[in-house]
C-alpha cells in the first residue's frame, strides 16, 4: 500500500493532487460528475471582500496547446461565499483551501478575518499573482517588499495553513518566494498564468477584450517546471507545482523537480476527470517503482 498523503504546514492532504484556483469554481459546479473526495484538496475561486463582476468579454481565447483568460477575479464576494458556499464543505473529505485576493493589504486581511470565524476551511492560498486586474493581485506579487508585508499581516490573523501563490511574470521568482518565506508563509504555490496575447488577423482585434490575458495549459508546463525547480532549490518551505498538468507523468515531473504537491487547472476544463486520473497514475508509478510514500519522489531528479 502506497502512502499518498502529504503534510504541508499543519494540514495533511490524503494525496498530492489539488484543483487550481479559478478552474474548479467553488467546488459545487461539477460535483455530480466527479467524486471530489478522491482528491487531496480543492482551491476555490479567488474570493475578494466585495463581489466582483469580472472583465468584459471576450474573456478567453484558445491558443496552441493552451488558452488565454482574462476573467478578472469574478466572484460572489466573501459575504455570499460564507452564506452560500461554505456549508458545502462540511461534507467534504478533501481539504478545502480558500483562495484570497484583494487590491490592498487591508482587503486581503478583511477577507481572511471573515473566513476565520467559520469552520470547514483548512487553509488559504493568497493570490498575489492574478495578471487580470488593474489593482492589487500581481502588483503585490512582483514586489518582494509588498509581498512580504502582506504575509506578515496575514500571519497575525490566522494559524491556518498559509500558501502564497506566485506569479512567473517577474525577473526572479525565487526572490519573491524567499521574501514570503521570511515573512512566515507556510508554502508557496507556483506558477500562476504567464501574461500572453493573441490577435485575430481577420478582425485585427486582440482575442481578449483587455488585450492581454493569462496563458495556461500544457504549453506552459516546461516554463512552470523550471520555476518550480528554481524555487525548490532556494526555499525550505514546501512548494506546490502548477502549470499545464494534464497527466500523472506531468504531475510526477513537478514532484521530481521538487514540488510536494500539485494543482491541476486548465485540464479540468476539457477533462473533468483529469485530477482524479492523475491521483491514480501517480499511485501506479509509485507502486511500479516500489516506493512506499509519495514523499520519496519529491525532488529526486538525478542531476549528474
Amino acid at each position: 500500500m502506497v502512502d499518498m498523503s502529504v503534510k504541508i504546514g499543519n494540514v495533511i492532504f490524503k494525496n498530492p493532487v489539488l484543483t487550481a484556483s479559478g478552474t474548479f469554481g467553488y467546488g459545487d459546479e461539477i460535483s455530480s460528475l466527479i467524486d471530489i473526495n478522491l482528491l487531496g484538496g480543492i482551491v476555490t475561486k479567488s474570493i475578494t471582500y466585495n463581489p466582483r463582476k469580472g472583465n468584459p468579454p471576450p474573456r478567453i481565447a484558445e491558443t496552441t496547446a493552451g488558452m488565454l483568460n482574462s476573467i478578472g477575479l469574478a466572484n460572489i464576494g466573501v459575504k455570499r461565499f460564507l452564506d452560500e458556499k461554505i456549508r458545502l464543505y462540511e461534507s467534504f473529505d478533501a481539504r478545502v483551501i480558500v483562495s484570497v485576493a484583494g487590491e490592498t493589504i487591508k482587503e486581503y486581511c478583511k477577507v481572511v478575518e471573515c473566513i476565520e470565524k467559520k469552520d470547514n476551511i483548512d487553509g488559504y492560498e493568497i493570490n498575489i499573482s492574478c495578471p487580470n486586474t488593474d489593482r492589487g493581485g500581481i502588483y503585490f506579487g512582483i514586489d518582494k517588499k509588498m509581498s512580504g508585508n502582506l504575509v506578515t499581516e496575514l500571519k497575525k490573523l490566522t494559524a491556518r495553513l498559509l500558501i502564497v501563490k506566485l506569479t512567473p511574470n517577474v525577473t526572479s521568482i525565487s526572490e519573491i518566494a524567499e521574501a514570503v518565506e521570511d515573512a512566515g508563509a507556510d508554502c508557496v504555490s507556483l506558477v500562476n498564468s504567464f501574461i500572453g496575447m493573441a490577435v485575430d488577423v481577420k478582425t485585427r482585434k486582440p482575442k481578449i477584450k483587455k488585450i492581454i490575458g493569462g496563458l495556461t495549459g500544457p504549453c506552459i508546463k516546461p516554463l512552470a517546471l523550471a520555476k518550480v525547480h528554481e524555487v525548490y532549490s532556494k526555499v525550505k518551505i514546501p512548494v506546490i507545482g502548477i502549470g499545464g498538468i494534464v497527466t500523472g507523468d506531468d504531475a510526477l515531473e513537478f514532484l521530481m523537480a521538487g514540488a510536494s504537491a500539485v494543482e491541476v487547472g486548465t485540464a479540468s476544463f476539457f477533462n473533468p476527470y483529469a485530477p482524479i486520473k492523475i491521483v491514480e497514475e501517480i499511485k501506479s508509478y509509485l507502486e511500479e517503482n516500489n516506493m512506499k510514500k509519495v514523499s520519496e519522489v519529491v525532488g529526486i531528479i538525478i542531476v549528474s
Binding site: 479559478g22 461539477i30 460528475l33 463582476k53 469580472g54 474573456r59 484558445e62 483568460n69 486548465t266
Partner: peptide
Amino acid sequence: ENMMACGTGLCQGCAVKIKNSKDDFEY
C-alpha cells in the same frame, strides 16, 4: 452562442451582460 472552455461554469469565460435592478449590470 459564445466561446467556452468548459461548458460547466468552471472557467467563467462565456460572460454575457445582463441588466439588473438599479440601472446596473452583471455578467
